[in-house]
Design a protein around this nucleic acid. Structure first.
Lengths: 218, 218
DNA sequence: TACATTACATACCAACTGGTTGGTATAATA
DNA sequence: TATTATACCAACCAGTTGGTATGTAATGTA
């Protein structure tokens, strides 16, 4: 019992620090976040912090992974995942993203997008981690998009990959605007536009090939 | 001559500091940017810095305004502005945004989006400034969008305002992804998708009313 | 019981940071 | 020419920051 408690608390402390990091970094950004801020939010001291993490940067990498795996779990078990039609899963993903715009801004915004804005030039490892996890999330979507394209017989100049990344861009950008306006409402509105775009691209009736854009580069 | 030189140098030093701030903050973020970094980039000392700006935060506000007025100038004189058709101006704006994805990431990304991500919780004045300038830029677009809607007889659930903000979200998000991937290519690809969406919304032929989304909130 | 390891806490430090001070050079003004 | 204001600099300072050194209680292990 006591052994189990101790074993748990080992993980608990590390997880507490990661959860605290997740919250504080999303609220204040990476650079402005002090190690002591995270310790205070976790109810621990710096001794514990540096026992679990070699440095502040290593914490950032661990927090990125922590955030990513939490997100993976959330989307893997989301109801829309079990829809049989790939088009419905793609639209379901977007609707789900809209539905989870709840509570504080620092609770639903993306840690990866927040960190990479600050870190892309000065902390290469953080940039790489953010890139990897964002791409991995996009790839999950890409699979459904590719299947949806086949389902609806869409033959377009754009690729499933580029559309998957586009959805991520819309989400990241909607978070930026939400922060500027200090409200989630604008993010919901942006997600509605994204939803409309996807409906237009995967429209069932007439020819599934939409109008052509003038330049394509990815 | 000497008087003019001195008068110029007054403004020159302040502008040098603002230009330096623009570059350094976009590369390292606001918090990670040190006053000395900006001074070094401007070739001046801290004495000069604090002569022109009361504090680091006041510089951020001035830099936001500087960035915004530079952008205003750029877009006001852009060739697409003189197109007679509002639809063409809306599409022209997006094409222009794609065309200026040149050089270093810290040269074409948005200072406002970068700063607001870090500052939205901790520096209310910076958040407000970023919000104001982003909204003002969006409003410029909104005018053309509203006219384009009339031109094409579009009667939709979405408003010109929401679409204008959506374009900004796409741009902001494409910068986030570009930073993650350390390349402007993904941003260009995202802008292509945005272009396609606008073409679909303002399609000339059949009914101009697109399919309806399930929820609208702005 | 004896020893080793893990999980923290407390106290501390060297480096850095935003901002201040006192001073100089130049130029406008009277 | 004397006076005042502006633009700028070099040196400094007090507070903060990431990180370390040291101690200790709990647990695992033999």
């Amino acid at each position: 019992m006591k052994a189990a408690e101790q074993h748990d608390s080992q993980h608990q402390s590390r997880t507490k620090l990661l959860d605290a990091a997740l919250y504080v970094i999303r609220a204040k950004g990476y650079s402005a976040t002090r190690v002591d801020d995270i310790c205070a939010a976790a109810g621990l001291t710096k001794g514990s912090f540096f026992h679990h993490f070699k440095s502040k940067e290593e914490l950032a990498l661990a927090a990125a992974e922590h955030f990513s795996s939490m997100a993976d779990g959330l989307f893997a078990t989301a109801p829309y995942r079990s829809l049989p039609n790939a088009v419905d899963r793609v639209l379901g993903y977007v609707e789900f993203r809209k539905a989870i715009l709840l509570g504080d801004l620092s609770q639903f915004t993306c840690l990866l997008g927040t960190m990479v804005q600050e870190a892309y030039e000065t902390y290469p490892k953080i940039r790489e981690a953010c890139d990897r996890y964002i791409s991995s999330h996009a790839h999950m979507l890409e699979t459904d998009i590719a299947e949806a394209m086949i389902t609806r017989g869409v033959h377009a100049e754009w690729t499933a990959e580029s559309l998957a990344f586009y959805t991520q861009a819309v989400l990241q950008g909607s978070f930026v605007l939400a922060k500027a306006q200090h409200s989630a409402q604008i993010a919901a509105s942006c997600i509605d536009h994204l939803h409309r775009y996807l409906e237009l691209l995967f429209a069932q009736p007439q020819s599934a090939t939409p109008t052509q854009p003038n330049q394509e580069s990815l």
